[in-house]
Every structure is written in C-alpha cells, then in structure tokens.
Simulated scan of single mutants.
Amino acid sequence: MLKNNIVKTVLRLFLGILVIITSAVLLILLFTEVVEVKNIQVMKWLPILICAIGFYFAGLINKITKFIFTLFLLTSLLFFILLDMLHFPFFFLIGFISVLSILSTRKELSKNIRISSLTLILVIFVGYLLSQPFIIKNKGYGTDMTGINLYNATVLWDFTTKPSRTLPKEFFKDYDENEVRFGDFKGKTIYVSFWATWCGPCMQQKPHLENLKQQLKDYTDIVFIDVSIDTDLEKWKNYLLSNEQVGHQLISQNIAKTHSNYQFSGIPYHIVIDSMGNFKQIAGPHALGYDSDLLSDSKRLTDFMNTPYKVFKINNIAGKDTIIRVR
C-alpha cells in the first residue's frame, strides 16, 4: 500500500513537471511564431505567465500530494535556465510566483488565502507586462540603418519615457578573467558589440567592425568593447589567440542577465554608451559609415540618444515601396 502511494505521488509529480514544461514550450511558440513579439526572450512577463499557468495546473494534478513534496515541482525551473530566460535575482521572483501558484490550488488553505495568492500573481504579472514595450512584428518587419526605427510593426504599448537607458552595473570578464564593467570607462563614448564565436552573422560583421575601429583609432575618447556570450570560455580564448582584435575583449558571466540588462534576444547586437552612462541600440558597423559619423560627432550622438524611435509602414504599390509614418 505504501509502495503504491509512493509510486502514485512520483507519477503525479512527474506529470506536473511535464505540464509545466509543455506550457512553457506552447507559450513560447505562441509568442514567437504566432504573435511574433519583438525581443520575446527578454520579456520578463513571459516566464511569470508560464509559471503562473504551468504551476497552477501542476498544483491541481498534485492537490492530494503533500505540500512539501509539491516543492519538487520547482526543479522544472532548470528548464528556464537552460533557455537563458532566468537570472539572479529574477530567479527568486519566479520561484515565489511558482509557489504562490501551487498554494492557490491547496484545498487545505482558506479560500481567502488562495484568492490572495492569485491576486498577487496577477498584480506582479501586469506590473511587468506594462513595464516593457509590447511590439508585434508584422509581415515585412525590419529596421532602418539606425537599428532603432521600425518598419511594419504594431506597438500595443510602450510607456518608456526616455529613448536611452541607464547603464546596468553588470560585470564581465576579460581574457585574464579580471572583472570589468562598462562603468570603468565613464566619461568616454563606448561602442559595444555583443557576439559569439558560433554566430555566423557576427563573423560576417567582424571585418566591418575592425574597419570601424581603424577609422576611429585617433579618437581617444571613443572606446570599443566586444562582449562574447559564448558559454565555452576556452573556445572564446582560442579565437582571440588566433584572431587579433582591436579594443577590449570581454565575455558575459551570465548570458540571461546580459540579455535582460541590454534588452536583446539575438546577435550580433550593438549599443552605444554616451559619456553620461546612457545606452541605446545602434545598427552596427555595416551601416555604410553611419556609426563612424555618429560616434565622432558629439552633438549628433546627443541628438541620437534623445530621439525616440519611429514606426513606419511599407506599402507595395505597383511594385514600388511607399513608406508611411504610423507612430
């Protein structure tokens, strides 16, 4: 009898974990392939939504399982870490949301406690949902040479008050594994490229990037930093030994945190940081001299940092593209 109960408990827990992971896969596919939300990988509301739904149904499956055993369901959060969707300290919030979802299914708790748990989850979810831009990529989506202005996109909301963002206090490692942060170069204009040795488009951009560095080598107030998001430290080091690179070479210590801090999902990705410590996405070194002119002209850079992005719609009429400003 005891053995049968143990087997049933293990099966319920396993089924609960399967439900959580399945919920994650389905919701990720929904927002990446069907709705096509821009930068979905760094949307903090997504793991909150996934855990709220997944752990709620996993809790229902395990409502007769002892509560202390249901905490084993939290091991499914490792799946999110593998997807680079969680980082510390955000990981603790997701764990808290997951526990609240389980509590909301426990019949031994009062109705008020269960409702309060669900209400708190809803408040946290809505807060994060509205804190980040919600932009949907339509057919023909793209960006202009600045990398900022959008074509064929729908902005459901964006409550961002400043075009640029304040620099996060994140530490990276250099070749000798010393900790370095962008703030160490305060007062300089910093051009940052996020890349990886396994990224084909990054490799294609490398010659353009090195050319840009050469164009601006006499500007002592401009600093170039390449940040790798490789998971294999030795592979990154071997690449640097075989390929001489100008500028500071760093590697991320926490890829999910880097993605979240600088709001990007894919690479290559480039940002410019002004002397005040504000940063903004920039197109990249392939933009036919745009970046070099922007970096070397302080007034132009200031204007760029303070200019909000625009959204345009491209209509193809009689084989010709017509651009219409929509935001």
Rank of each mutant, 00 (worst) to 15 (best):
I124Q: 09
I124S: 03
G127L: 07
Y128E: 02
Y128C: 01
L129Y: 15
S131K: 15
P133G: 06
P133E: 02
P133N: 08
P133T: 05
P133Q: 05
F134W: 11
I136S: 10
K137V: 08
K137P: 00
K137T: 05
N138D: 13
G140P: 01
Y141N: 06
Y141V: 12
Y141F: 15
G142T: 05
T143F: 12
T143Y: 12
D144V: 09
T146A: 02
T146S: 11
T146I: 06
N149R: 06
L150H: 04
N152M: 01
A153N: 00
T154Y: 03
V155W: 04
L156F: 14
L156T: 07
W157R: 04
D158C: 04
D158A: 06
F159S: 06
T160G: 15
T161M: 09
T161Y: 00
T161A: 11
S164F: 01
R165K: 12
R165Q: 08
L167C: 02
P168H: 08
P168K: 09
K169P: 00
K169E: 14
E170W: 11
F171N: 07
F171S: 09
F171R: 13
K173R: 12
K173I: 04
Y175S: 11
Y175M: 13
D176W: 09
D176T: 11
D176G: 01
E177R: 13
E177G: 00
E179Q: 15
V180I: 15
R181G: 07
G183F: 01
F185H: 07
K186R: 14
K186S: 14
K188W: 01
T189R: 11
T189P: 07
V192Q: 04
S193Q: 14
S193E: 14
S193G: 06
F194M: 02
W195F: 12
A196C: 09
W198V: 02
C199E: 07
G200A: 13
C202V: 13
C202H: 12
M203R: 15
M203Q: 13
Q204N: 12
Q204I: 13
Q204R: 14
Q204A: 11
P207I: 13
P207S: 11
H208W: 12
N211A: 14
L212V: 05
K213D: 06
K213C: 04
K213T: 04
Q214F: 05
Q214S: 09
Q215V: 06
L216H: 09
L216P: 10
L216D: 08
L216F: 08
